[in-house]
């Protein structure tokens, strides 16, 4: 399959994201795709708070968002075809507390793809990518190639 355009990847990732019940529960949406980099958005919700005095999000919410973003970034890689990719491992550095009341974005890309393993890196942030809340790295296993070409509409230019 040739390299997918941004709009083809957007449609593919949106269909995948919308079929994941836990992503829908947390209101995780596809924000944008720029080449191999995928960005998802998590809207702030009071039920997701970890410190009720400060109103700041629970660290575990970032784990869900980053696992989702890094995992779905695997289908945005131009180095390998879309595949079933369970998470092998995930590491998160919590760089600062997420500000209360703010939506969170997470961006991720595959930085190395081998025949069996996809190595992925990503960040969570609010206002600016230059001031991240968390950094995540992880690896995903290519279990089986899946023909997703039926999901991919003809390219009508970039989103």
């Amino acid at each position: 399959m040739p390299v997918l355009s941004n709009s083809q990847k957007y449609n593919l990732v949106k269909i995948m994201n919308d079929h994941i019940p836990h992503a829908a529960l947390l209101g995780i949406e596809v924000e944008c795709i720029d080449g191999e980099e995928l960005t998802l958005k998590l809207p702030y919700q009071t039920v997701l708070v970890g410190d009720s005095d400060a109103g700041t999000l629970h660290g575990g919410v970032l784990t869900v968002l980053l696992d989702q973003t890094l995992g779905m970034a695997t289908v945005c890689s131009d180095a390998s075809e879309p595949s079933v990719t369970p998470t092998l491992d995930l590491r998160i550095d919590h760089l600062r507390v997420a500000p209360a009341g703010m939506d969170i974005f997470a961006s991720a890309r595959v930085y190395k793809a081998t025949r069996k393993i996809l190595f992925v890196e990503g960040f969570a942030y609010c206002e600016s990518k230059d001031n991240p809340i968390a950094r995540a790295t992880g690896s995903w296993v290519r279990v089986a190639d899946v023909d997703l070409s039926w999901l991919v509409p003809p390219d009508k230019g970039t989103v």
Partner: peptide, 24 residues
């Protein structure tokens, strides 16, 4: 809880929610 499903075809729980549970 069905709300925690991450892979509806297996079905399997979302890895992120397992992580969040373990962190808590």
């Amino acid at each position: 809880d069905k709300r925690f499903i991450g892979n509806p075809s297996l079905p399997a729980l979302h890895g992120g929610v397992i992580g969040a549970f373990m962190e808590q």
